[in-house]
């Protein structure tokens, strides 16, 4: 599904190099977690994959089902099936949440040559999915993420993911700023989407999210590289011993 090879990335302005040769392969139907200390390059990896400005790829590649992602516009990557749940979802005053979602769903359908959903069809689907995430009608009417609590913003990200039905989902610190109940709600939303044709890359600092979204593979990232890969037990090791112990062995 997702294959990243020897990815090197620096900031567009200045010389700061952030990713120093990332190699990662995620198969369909699997959940991979990336853990790592602050500043290790986890969020940069997610931004570069989704096409945010401000980064320069100096070496390497990233493909989704064999198609080179790094040369595509952000909207083309989305249409190809990539989705990033943001660590800090963006507020867009003046654009209604419902309008935003419908525009996005129909833009992707159009890009894939599918018929657009009618207002009625869309409403039916969105209501059902919103209900499961405890997102009420009032929240759908408000401008995108404006005045939303931290938990509401994250649930709104998961709703977008559920509506867009991407193949490759990247979750960037989706657990940050969530209490236990909100985290369960978000995790349930993610788990409901798990299936054989879909893969997840879950970026997190802490092991606790992985209690709810059980990963198949865990990677440790440090200093712009994947330095260790293992099973779910690796996350527990981090939880008990911290990063320093693990990193002292590999760096």
């Amino acid at each position: 599904m997702l294959e990243i090879k020897n990815l090197h990335v620096k900031l567009e302005e200045g010389d700061k190099v952030i990713l120093k040769g990332v190699d990662l392969r995620v198969e369909a139907g699997r959940v991979h977690a990336i853990m790592g200390p602050n500043g290790s390059g986890k969020s940069t990896l997610s931004y570069v994959l989704s096409g945010r400005d401000g980064y320069e790829v100096t070496e390497g590649s990233a493909t989704l089902d064999g198609r080179e992602l790094l040369e595509m516009e952000p909207e083309a990557r989305a249409a190809a099936g990539l989705f990033l749940a943001f660590q800090y979802p963006v507020e867009i005053p003046g654009v209604g949440n419902m309008t935003f979602l419908r525009t996005a769903v129909n833009a992707q359908r159009k890009a894939r040559g599918e018929a657009e959903l009618s207002a009625g069809e869309f409403l039916k689907i969105v209501r059902e999915k919103a209900k499961a995430l405890k997102i009420d009608a009032e929240m759908m009417k408000r401008p995108v993420n404006v005045g939303f609590s931290g938990g509401e913003k994250k649930r709104n990200e998961i709703l977008q993911m559920a509506m867009l039905e991407p193949k490759m989902c990247i979750l960037d610190e989706t657990d940050s700023g969530l209490d236990v109940d909100a985290m369960k709600l978000v995790a349930n939303g993610v788990n409901a989407l798990r299936d054989e044709g879909r893969a997840f890359l879950v970026i997190t600092h802490y092991q606790r999210l992985l209690d709810h979204i059980k990963p198949d593979v865990v990677h440790i990232m440090a200093d712009g590289r994947i330095v260790k890969t293992g099973g779910p037990e690796l996350a527990l090791e981090v939880e008990h011993n911290g990063y320093a112990d693990i990193l002292s062995g590999v760096l």
Partner: peptide, 11 residues
């Protein structure tokens, strides 16, 4: 905001 919209597939 522009990037956010585009990342959701809006051209």
């Amino acid at each position: 905001a522009l990037y956010y919209l585009r990342s959701r597939g809006v051209p």
